[in-house]
Computed example of a mutant assay.
Amino acid sequence: MHEMSLMESVIDIACETARQNGATRVKSIRLDVGVLCHVDPHALLFCHEAVRHGTIAADAELEINRVAGQGWCLDCGKTVALQERFGACPDCGKYRVQMTAGDELKIRDMEVI
């Protein structure tokens, strides 16, 4: 389960960023998780419960925002929705689609005190 190591990194980054900015507690963390990034949001929530204890993020709430897949079709010149990595353009059917959203995993913001 790679979600465990991902969540450990999220908690480490949040705690370190909070300390660098003079905060003593992380109150909430908001993540953007793309639907095409192969990360299970339910597993992230489970891992969050396991790894936050004993840190300044011990009471932090986790909010996960799902980011839809999107790409730019080089053939028809349109921004299109993507349902899978390396999928065909839903408009023209060709496979020259450059992914522009949906594969991210990033901390959008966090609240500290």
Results as ranks from 00 to 15, higher is better:
59 D>N: 14
59 D>M: 11
60 A>S: 06
61 E>H: 01
62 L>G: 14
62 L>Q: 09
63 E>H: 03
63 E>K: 04
64 I>S: 03
65 N>E: 14
66 R>P: 08
66 R>T: 14
66 R>N: 12
67 V>N: 11
67 V>D: 02
68 A>E: 08
68 A>L: 06
68 A>K: 08
69 G>H: 05
69 G>D: 13
69 G>V: 15
70 Q>D: 02
70 Q>F: 07
70 Q>P: 00
71 G>C: 14
71 G>L: 09
71 G>I: 06
71 G>N: 11
72 W>T: 15
73 C>F: 05
74 L>T: 09
74 L>I: 08
74 L>R: 15
74 L>S: 10
74 L>A: 14
74 L>K: 13
75 D>L: 06
75 D>W: 00
76 C>K: 06
76 C>W: 01
77 G>W: 01
77 G>A: 05
78 K>Q: 13
78 K>S: 15
80 V>W: 03
80 V>P: 07
81 A>G: 00
82 L>R: 07
82 L>H: 05
83 Q>D: 12
83 Q>V: 04
84 E>Y: 11
85 R>Q: 08
85 R>E: 13
86 F>A: 09
87 G>F: 07
89 C>R: 04
90 P>L: 05
90 P>A: 08
90 P>R: 01
94 K>P: 00
94 K>V: 03
95 Y>N: 13
95 Y>K: 12
97 V>W: 10
97 V>G: 15
98 Q>Y: 09
98 Q>A: 12
98 Q>E: 12
